[in-house]
Amino acid sequence: MISVQNLMKAFPQKGGDVFYAVDDVSFSAGDGEIVCLLGVNGAGKTTTMRVLSTIFKPTSGTATVQGWDIKTHPQEVRNNLGFLTGDTGLYNRLRVHEFIRYFGRLYSMQDDAITRSMNDMAELLDMKDFMDKKIEFLSTGMKQKVSIVRSIIHDPPVMIFDEPTAGLDILTARNIISFIRSCKERGKCVLFSTHIMREAERLADRIVMIHKGKVLAEGTLEALREETSQVDLDDIFVYYVNQYAGSAAEGAKVEAHEF
């Protein structure tokens, strides 16, 4: 499970200003649950996930992954976490199985355990055909599947997927979405981000809406519908953004068609 408490991440700007990409964010995600971070581009989703995955250190506040504090036990957090970012690259000159094995070894796995885990996931994600190919010859969809296996080869209890279907064709996207569901069924804690409302609607047990580094709302789709008396997630999101903009007195309202 993941528990985030008052997380802040500031980036120093040139000349001494400070920009808060993550501004006092708190939420949690339990085992066997899929939680979606929903927000527009630049809302702070990726930064939040990067802090959770120990790539960035938090400026203040903290979070725990499977009980391990990201500040004090980063190594344990990494071992209990699979992290996939949207546009990660791969080592083009390696073959698929070599690539996956490399990361398995970095997670201190034995070779036979890697082989087993790799074969299972290759089955689920329909990638048997290209396991021996060099990565440079793969299509975008194939590469994303390899990335997914890479990130969770060590079968972590917590999985974080940052825009896992971005730029993929419909078939591959569905394949990946059903794979994420299967992770939930196996009792994993899944946190994923997207800016596609439909995806959030179909996949998430709970939704955390993020805007300008802040959490606007959190809850199940039903609860959010009830609170805003809107049906569409698009409209729900815009409702909250407008509410935020109103409270921050930032003027112009956001129209639904922008999304």
């Binding site: 120990t54 790539i55 990494r78 976490l81 970012t85 970095l106 990130s151």
Partner: peptide, 14 residues
Amino acid sequence: ERKTLETLLVAGVD
């Protein structure tokens, strides 16, 4: 440049 660094940083390695 190839955006692989991040994958390495989250892997279980110091």
